[in-house]
Amino acid sequence: MKSEDELVEDVLSGDHRAFELLLQPYRQGLLSMAYRMTGNLEEAKEVCQEALIKVYRYLRRFKKGRSFKSWIYRITVNSAYDSLRKKKKDEYLVESQKKIDFSAGHDPEKQLLNREIKAKIETCLQNLSPKEKATFLLRDGEGFSIQEASEILECSSISIRTHLSRARKKIREQFEKINFADAKEVRR
């Protein structure tokens, strides 16, 4: 089993198969991250495609001995930011959030616990700013350490703690709000 640094060397010497082997462990993680950031699967695939192109193109810039995982996540998060910026995604997210809130109330399958939890958490995530969302997803979704997250997002670990703290606070508040709303509905 070759190490990531060796696979990088192979790709740089023209072995296309090595590129697939190099990225295989991250195919789910990258797509999930992009999906949570953009809120749309098709868009997430486009973001990942853009990231893959950049990874291949700028592979020579990757410094050996450093974490390849952090490097490709940084590229993916930056591509997601670009995508959000280009399409004024923030406005779209507010709209889609409204749709979620509305549909959740009238969905006949709302009774199903999984769907309900899914809708709640989706709503919670949509309320975060892109930076908070990226920090939260990297730390609590992908399991990166604070230090790794600060490298990926190119900011200080203090900033990461602040964003993470805010994100968790917002999520908790949303959770409580939704629970409270559900309790009211049940009482009726």
Partner: peptide, 19 residues
Amino acid sequence: YNLSLEKTKEWLAKDRKDW
């Protein structure tokens, strides 16, 4: 905080997207 974080983490792990 623990409850909301636990539920969110659980869901994020369960609902992973794949190609």
